[in-house]
């Protein structure tokens, strides 16, 4: 697929997204700057769209970097415990500070996300049995352990209600005021692009990297920091979006290979488009109600994930 078509599709879908919703808004309404429609548009629709685009692009690119650095196509924030570690971090920040500011939550959950991911990478290093499918299973188990810890402590301290909003990704609550945290993913995406070649080299393995004069450890750690940052901003603003970081990079890899400098823009675009489609479907399928984004992505995503699994098997 040409990048050109992707961009055209993205613009079309973005437009659709802006004008789909419970209160009907037409482009004509916006001509009146003070109308209620314009207010809704600015306070809810635009932030929602921006959040979807940034979260979709961010999670896909984060997944792509993880797969490259771990040299395993099935490692992603979902399958390496990053998402669960982030939630544990959010819980801890809520327990430590009764009224944690967004920045405090962000800092603590970032530390957890990074530590969780690094821990998983350590486990990965020590596993002798490096079957492509076995490793994400280990990651899922690892994530589940973190997740049960979170649930356990959340129950004990009666914050399970507050936590549940981070259990499921949901764009319907996105309003101006909180989603701005997602803007952090813009400079991160730029940095990821600048480092794309280094990530590709790191993906060739430690010996190749050393032969090419790359500071392997630094690049891997740097990449994981970017991944943790993106994941944290998305979970804090939108919630968990499973599978996105897994399926989009895999599809791009099959179509265009793993030369990140070439595939990163593609991955970001595809991620944004995929999430946008899921969101629009979620909003129109049971109109006037909404299906949450994590459910939509979970259903469509796990289907694609299964397909990828079988496909891998076929030519492994």
């Amino acid at each position: 697929m040409k990048t050109r078509y992707l961009i055209a599709g993205l613009i079309l879908l973005s437009f659709t997204s802006l004008f789909v919703g419970v209160s009907s808004i037409t482009p004509m309404d916006l001509l009146d700057w003070s109308s209620e429609e314009t207010q809704i548009f600015l306070i809810s629709r635009v932030p929602r769209l921006v959040a979807i685009l940034l979260a979709g692009a961010g999670m896909s690119v984060a997944g792509m970097i993880m797969q490259q650095l771990s040299r395993n196509k099935f490692v992603s924030p979902t399958t390496a415990g990053t998402l669960d570690a982030t939630r544990l971090g959010i819980l801890v920040s809520m327990l430590l500070f009764t009224n944690a500011t967004l920045l405090e939550q962000m800092a603590i959950s970032f530390a957890f996300a990074l530590a969780g991911t690094l821990l998983f990478m350590q486990i990965l290093d020590r596993i002798k049995f490096k079957d492509a499918i076995f490793i994400p299973l280990v990651g899922l188990m690892f994530g589940n352990i973190l997740s049960s810890l979170t649930t356990f402590f959340a129950y004990r301290s009666n914050v399970i209600q507050n936590m549940s909003s981070w259990l499921q990704g949901d764009f319907s609550m996105i309003m101006s005021g909180r989603y701005e945290l997602l803007y952090i993913s813009v400079p991160i995406l730029v940095l990821a692009y600048v480092y794309a070649n280094r990530f590709t080299v790191a993906g060739m393995g430690e010996d190749f990297s050393r032969n090419l004069g790359l500071n392997y450890k630094f690049v891997v750690n740097f990449g994981l920091i970017l991944v943790a940052l993106v994941t944290v901003t998305v979970v804090l603003t939108v919630g968990m979006i499973p599978f996105l970081g897994l399926i989009i990079p895999n599809i791009v890899s099959i179509m265009k290979g793993d030369n990140l400098e070439k595939t990163l823009p593609h991955t970001a675009l595809m991620g944004a488009i995929f999430l946008l489609i899921c969101d629009i479907l979620g909003r129109v399928l049971i109109y006037p109600y909404e299906i949450s984004i994590s459910l939509m992505v979970g259903v469509i995503g796990s289907g694609i994930f299964l397909y990828l699994l079988f496909r891998r098997k076929a030519y492994a």
Binding site: R71, T200, V201, L212, L214, D258, N259
Partner: peptide, 28 residues
């Protein structure tokens, strides 16, 4: 150096791989 056995599961084309040989000189 080229090692005795090389496991690589990065999907690169031959030209892309060879181009990465220039990495120390050009950073890509």
């Amino acid at each position: 150096i080229l090692k005795q056995s090389n496991f690589m599961n990065v999907r690169l084309t031959v030209r892309e791989l060879v181009s990465f040989g220039r990495f120390p000189h050009s950073k890509g």
